[in-house]
Amino acid sequence: MRPLLPLIAITTTLAAGVAGCGGDGGGKATVLKPGEAISMQNLRFKPDHVQVTVGQKVTWRNDENIGHDVKADSGARFASETFDKGGTFSYTPTAAGTIKYECTLHPGMDGTIDVVAR
Rank of each mutant, 00 (worst) to 15 (best):
D24F: 12
D48W: 01
H68V: 15
D63F: 02
T30E: 07
V52T: 06
L43T: 04
S39V: 02
A37V: 14
I38L: 06
W60Y: 10
P34L: 00
E64M: 15
P34C: 01
Q41L: 10
V52D: 01
V52E: 03
I66W: 10
V52N: 01
E36L: 01
N65D: 15
K33E: 14
H68N: 12
N42W: 05
R44D: 08
D48H: 03
S39L: 14
P34M: 04
G25C: 01
V54T: 13
P34E: 05
R44M: 02
V31D: 10
V50K: 04
H68L: 03
D24E: 13
G35I: 13
G35A: 06
V58A: 06
T30G: 00
G22S: 07
K71T: 14
D73G: 08
G23D: 02
I38A: 04
G27T: 07
G23V: 03
T59S: 08
G27N: 11
V54N: 08
G20N: 13
R61A: 12
Q51L: 15
G22W: 11
K71Q: 15
S39E: 10
G23F: 04
N65M: 10
V70E: 05
K28I: 11
D63T: 13
H68K: 08
Q51G: 03
N62C: 11
T59Q: 09
G25P: 00
D24I: 04
V31P: 04
N65V: 09
Q51A: 13
S74Q: 12
G26Q: 08
E64H: 10
L43G: 00
K46A: 04
A19H: 08
N65C: 07
V18F: 11
A37W: 02
D24T: 13
A19R: 12
Q51F: 01
G26A: 03
A72G: 09
K57T: 15
N65Y: 14
G26P: 10
Q51M: 07
I66F: 14
D63M: 12
Q51S: 14
V18M: 11
